[in-house]
Amino acid sequence: MSALFQPLQTGGVTLENRIVVSPMCQYSAVEGLAQPWHLIHIGGLMLSGAGLVIMEATATEAAGRITHGCLGLYNHEHEAALASLVSETKKLSSAALGIQIGHAGRRASCRPVKDRNKGESLPPEEGAWQTFGPSAFGVDETWHVPKEMDADDIARVTQSFADAAQRADRAGFDVLEVHAAHGYLLHQFLSPVTNHRTDAYGGSTENRMRFPLEVVRAVRKVWPKDKALGVRVNSTDWHPEGQSIDEAVAFAQQLEAAGVDYVVMSAGNLAPGTQIPPATPGHQVDFATLVKKHTGLVSMAVGLIATPELAEEIVSEDKADLVAIGRAMLDNPRWGLHAAARLGVDVDYPPQYLRARPNNWLGFPLVHPDAQPVEATRQIDRPASSGGWDRPDINTASGR
C-alpha cells in the first residue's frame, strides 16, 4: 500500500490522503473580494486528487494585503464571497478545504509579481498605503517605512486574526492556517533581523514569540476543535543574524501547547541579500522531520516536492506526515490522480472524468508511461444502454 494515499487525522479533520495543495497567491481579488478566477482555480484543484486544498494567503485587515489583488477576510462581503465559493467547490469532491490567513506587515503595499520589474514597493500614485511592522525600517531603501506597531496596533491586528478565523468558520472552511513565515508580519516579529524592539515584544526569543503566540491563541479560542488549525513556520532565515532552526522548534513546541494541530515547515524570504542555498528536490524536508521528532504535531513538508516518488518516500520513511505541493499543481492540476497511477493506487475519479481513469482508458499508458498497472477495486458506474461503455477498458473516438 502507498503511504502517500493513507488517511490522516489532524485536529478534528480526517484527510483521505497525505497530499496537500499549498496556498498560492493569485493576485486576482478586487478590494479583497474573491472573483470568478478563484472559483475556477480552487474548483480545479479540488479535483486534483489531493486530500486537502488550502486557499491563498488572505489578509485579516486591508493594511495587511500584500498587493491590491490579494484576498481579504475582514468584512461581511469577503465572508459571503468565500462562503459561496466553499459551497460550490465542496460539491466537486470530498477533499478538505482550508484557507491561510495572514498579514504582510512591512511587506504589504507592493506590486503583484507580473509588475515587479518596476520595483516591488507601491509608489503613492499607484495606491500605496500605510504599512506596519515590529520596527520602523523598510525592506530596503526602495521600500516605504512601516509604522512601528504600538499596543493599540498589536491589539487591533490580534483581533483581526480572531475575526477572520470566525468568518472562515462561518464560510465553511475545514482547515485554517496562520501564516507566520516568508517575511510577513508574524515572522517579522519572530526574527531578530526585522524585530529591533526593546519592549516585551523584542529582544529574547521568548519576547519575539510573544505577539505571534498571542495571535495563535486568539485564533485557537474561536476556531472550532472539530476542525483543524495549522501554522506555517519559518524554519530558518538563511541569515547569520536570523531565526535559527532551534528557535523554530521551540516556537513549534509553544504552538503545540497553544492547541495547534499541525505545522508547515518552510524557510527564507525575509530580507534582501540573504544567501539562500539553491533549491533541490525536498530541500526543506529535514525541517519537518526535526519538528516531528521534537513535538507531537502533525508535520507538513514543503520545498520542491514535485514527483510522486519523492512524496511517497517522505511519508513512507516518516520524514513528514503531509507533503504540500505548490507549483507542480499549477503545472498539472491532476497531480494527485496521476501520482496514484504512478504508485499503482486505484482512487476515485470524478464521474465526469471516468473515461480518463487509468483502468478505463487505453491511451493512459501512452501519455503516462511511468505509471504502474492499476486494477480496479471498485465498481465503475456505466450506463446500461448500448450507448454506454460496454467494458471499462474500451473507449472509442466518439467518446464511448
Rank of each mutant, 00 (worst) to 15 (best):
L52D: 02
L52N: 06
L52K: 01
V53F: 08
M55V: 09
M55F: 04
M55T: 06
M55S: 02
E56H: 06
A57V: 15
A57D: 07
A57R: 08
T58K: 13
T58A: 10
T58V: 03
T58R: 05
T60N: 01
T60S: 02
E61N: 03
E61H: 03
A62S: 08
A62M: 07
A62R: 14
A62C: 07
A63L: 04
G64T: 00
R65T: 12
I66K: 04
T67G: 04
H68C: 06
H68L: 14
G69T: 08
G69Q: 00
G69E: 04
G69N: 02
G69P: 10
C70G: 05
C70V: 04
L71G: 05
G72M: 08
G72A: 02
G72E: 10
G72T: 00
L73I: 00
Y74A: 12
Y74F: 12
Y74C: 07
H76D: 12
H76L: 14
H76E: 11
H76Y: 05
E77C: 05
E77W: 00
E77P: 01
H78L: 06
E79T: 11
E79D: 04
A81V: 13
L82C: 06
L82F: 13
L82D: 03
A83W: 01
A83N: 04
S84D: 10
S84K: 14
S84P: 00
L85V: 05
L85W: 06
L85E: 02
S87P: 01
S87D: 00
S87N: 07
E88I: 09
T89K: 06
K90I: 05
L92M: 05
L92R: 09
L92Y: 07
S93Q: 12
A96H: 02
A96S: 10
A96M: 10
L97S: 00
L97C: 07
G98L: 06
G98I: 03
G98A: 01
G98D: 01
I99E: 12
I99S: 03
Q100P: 01
Q100K: 02
I101L: 10
I101H: 10
G102E: 04
A104M: 15
R106V: 09
R106N: 06
R106S: 12
R107C: 11
A108C: 08
S109P: 08
C110D: 03
C110S: 04
P112R: 13
P112L: 15
P112G: 14
V113I: 12
V113A: 09
K114C: 14
K114W: 09
D115L: 15
D115R: 10
D115Y: 05
R116P: 03
R116T: 01
R116S: 00
R116D: 01
R116Y: 13
K118F: 12
K118A: 13
G119R: 11
G119Q: 05
G119L: 14
G119F: 06
E120A: 15
E120V: 10
L122I: 13
P123I: 14
P124W: 03
E126D: 11
E126F: 02
G127A: 15
G127D: 04
G127Y: 03
W129G: 02
Q130C: 06
Q130K: 13
T131D: 08
T131I: 11
T131C: 09
T131M: 02
G133N: 07
P134I: 14
P134C: 04
S135T: 08
S135L: 08
A136Q: 09
F137P: 14
F137H: 12
F137A: 15
G138E: 05
D140W: 07
D140R: 00
E141D: 12
